[in-house]
């Protein structure tokens, strides 16, 4: 009983084969086996949102998935998003607006923000707050986080609208 299981997971573009105990969560696997410590473990029961990762392109709690369940899947962590500059404008906006203090929740918040920005259009502040309902931040009071996400969304929309200025009437 409780025997280890071999899994193959693509993490941040790299295929990783490992032997894991069935009870090991994806969050612990990423942090301990792969040393990707940008994924934080807070509540370990799906409430705080510090452990969010992309699993097959969808944002999920890595504390609510056992690593064995991710066998064959594609995982992207906050390190992956940062390295391929997928969240560069969010990082810039968070920096400018001081949208973090201790930073513990920030990887999860950025994951949520990445998901919000992946949708078309500029989200309303209510939509941003709704999306952040699964992320706990005990420092900022959220106002600066909402500001930063809104700013990044606006900049992205403006940049998308700009490419052909000379054709404007």
């Amino acid at each position: 009983m409780n025997e280890a299981v071999n899994i193959r997971v693509t993490v941040n573009g790299e295929v990783r084969s490992h032997s894991v105990a069935p009870r090991e969560t994806l969050a612990d696997f990423l942090r301990n086996a792969l040393e990707l410590t940008g994924t934080h473990t807070g509540c370990e029961m799906g409430a705080c949102g510090a452990c969010l990762v992309l699993l097959d392109g969808q944002i999920v709690h890595s504390c609510l998935i056992f690593a064995v369940q991710a066998d064959g899947a594609v995982v992207e962590t906050i390190e992956g998003l940062a390295q391929r500059k997928a969240i560069a404008e969010l990082q810039e906006a968070f920096h400018q607006r001081n949208a973090l203090q201790c930073g513990f929740c920030t990887p999860g918040v950025l994951m949520t923000a990445y998901g919000v920005l992946a949708r078309p259009g500029v989200p309303s502040r209510n939509e941003i707050r709704d999306a952040l309902s699964g992320n706990y931040c005990r420092c900022t009071g959220y106002e600066a986080i909402v500001d930063a996400i809104e700013t990044a969304a606006r900049r992205r929309a403006e940049a998308a609208a700009e490419p052909e200025p000379e054709t404007a009437p």
Binding site: P22, M45, G46, H61, F66, Q69
Partner: peptide, 26 residues
Amino acid sequence: YIAGGQSLVPALALRLQAPQLLIDIA
């Protein structure tokens, strides 16, 4: 049985349940 596990995994983490075998039906 485990499918999405979004209620079961917290219950396991809190040790409200402690099965010997998890059957992944996903």
